[in-house]
Design a protein around this nucleic acid. Structure first.
Length: 307
DNA sequence: GCGTCCAGGTCTACC
DNA sequence: GGTAGACCTGGACGC
């Protein structure tokens, strides 16, 4: 499959923490990304992708032979996860224009040359918005280690089984069929238990259409309003989910990004949300992406320009 | 070993 | 609209 160049697979995989959560697997040395994916047929296939001479090479396998349609479904799901359908040209145009201002002496803008050179800006997503939403709930008000454990337990106890014992991420239907006590006692989700159950039930019953949001023409403000109406989704969680939908108007500020910005920009105290919004306002509807690239630049072997 | 703090927040009640 | 307090877990830390 051809991709829009420049494209760096590792950069997209490590764009945020999802690759570190079940059921993703990232072989750093071999540069192979893989995961089990639940197919419409009910079977679970394992999908793999790696860089090829031209574009990306996909591979899929399951218990028994995969049909052509199933293989296509698996590949398409992985392409969605890598956000290959996202057009970054408008962001790049804005970032390039601001880069010219920055090199001309405008000191309040971040140095995003590395991102432009390497094609950064795609964020790793889940095959479904539902999975992104559940994982986002599992990141709130806890350590990353606890997030990993909760997601691992969800896959291990409710995910469909694929080849080599691989467990997929559970469907909304599978999650909706369990009790609140299950999420408290088996998943150890604590106060998040009723939120997880309500989310799964609403999605399974069709009362909440999360999947439609990926191709929605609705304005970002309306999507944000709908996400905020979901129990457990406050400002951070809703804006983080927006980011995974390719909507970067908002910043999804949390304690980690605020602290990281303070360190990168050498401020004595953690900047207010209003200050951060002002810093990134020049990027317009790409403000959240520009901020995210600034705070994650050092994950990719590039040092940010701030002292 | 035990208590406290806090980590990639959110909700509710109250002012 | 702003804010205090409650909410779960589990690892780190100090004693």
């Amino acid at each position: 499959m051809e991709v829009q160049e420049p494209f760096d697979l590792a950069l997209t995989v490590r764009s945020h923490g999802w690759y570190d959560l079940a059921p993703w697997r990232w072989d750093e040395q071999g540069a192979v990304l893989s995961r089990p994916i639940a197919l419409a047929s009910g079977r679970v296939a394992v999908a793999e992708v790696t860089r090829a001479a031209r574009g990306l090479a996909f591979r899929a396998f399951a218990r028994g032979r995969l049909g052509a349609a199933e293989a296509r479904e698996t590949r398409d799901a992985l392409a969605t996860c890598l956000a290959l359908d996202e057009d970054l040209a408008p962001f790049r145009a804005r970032a390039e224009a601001l880069e010219r201002e920055r090199s001309a002496g405008r000191a309040d803008l971040p140095d995003l040359r590395w991102a432009l050179e390497r094609g950064a800006g795609r964020l790793l997503r889940s095959p479904t918005v539902f999975e992104d939403a559940v994982k986002t709930l599992c990141t709130t008000n806890c350590s990353w280690a606890l997030t990993r454990v909760m997601v691992e337990r969800l896959c291990g106890s409710l995910g469909g089984e694929g080849p080599q014992g691989a467990r997929a991420f559970p469907s909304a239907e599978a999650m909706a069929g369990r009790s609140e006590a299950f999420y408290r006692e088996a998943i150890r989700a604590g106060y998040r238990a009723p939120y997880l159950l309500a989310l799964a039930r609403d999605v399974a019953a069709g009362a909440l259409d999360l999947e439609g949001l990926r191709r929605s023409a609705l304005p970002t403000a309306e999507i944000l309003r709908r996400l905020r109406a979901v129990r457990g989704f406050g400002p951070y969680a809703a804006e983080h989910l927006l980011r995974l939908l390719g909507r970067h108007d908002h910043l999804a500020l949390d304690s980690w990004t605020r602290a990281k910005l303070a360190r990168l920009r050498g401020t004595r105290r953690v900047p207010s949300d209003r200050t951060v919004r002002r810093w990134f306002a020049p990027y317009g509807r790409w403000a959240g992406l520009a901020m995210w690239l600034e705070v994650t630049a050092d994950w990719h072997g590039d040092r940010p320009s701030w002292p």
